[in-house]
Amino acid sequence: MNAAFAAAALPHLDAAYTLARWLVREPAAAEDVVQEAMVRALTYFASYRGDNPRAWLLRIVRNTAYDRMGAERRRGEQPLDDAEAFADPSPDPEAALQGREQRDGLAAALAALPAELRECVVLREIEELSYRDIARITDVPVGTVMSRLFRARQMLLRVGRAEEAVKEPRT
């Protein structure tokens, strides 16, 4: 049972951690989220019948991350979302996550998106999941995934255009 679960889940550990990093940001928090998600996943595994263990696991990671973010917000701990990343252009988690590419601002712009838009971009662009899988993971209709992705991309493009204008005025 554990071995079967390990075979199904462990190959997707990096994907799980990456999603957790983009959702809760802090490496230690992301680690906690993945660990907790794995424990949850193990308990659900007996009743799991699907054919896409990666999407299944990412859904549990995503829900675990949201539970944690919700709990922290309720406890009035550090605000995890939205404007925060804009206020500080180089917060440590993003810097660590993105290394030198931090400079181009795209990662920072993604980090600054609201969670429900950010997760769509991460699932699509990093995990390369289909709309259907993203819809399942985020528990919304496919149409909502499409419009969220579109909104997210428009916001990223806007940031990109603003930076372009500052950096190198086109000739």
Binding site: L13, T18, V34, Q98, E101, L110, I126
Partner: peptide
């Protein structure tokens, strides 16, 4: 650009 900026991070 996203493809070149973002990648899966090792656990």
């Amino acid at each position: 650009a996203l493809h070149h900026t973002l990648r899966t991070e090792a656990a």
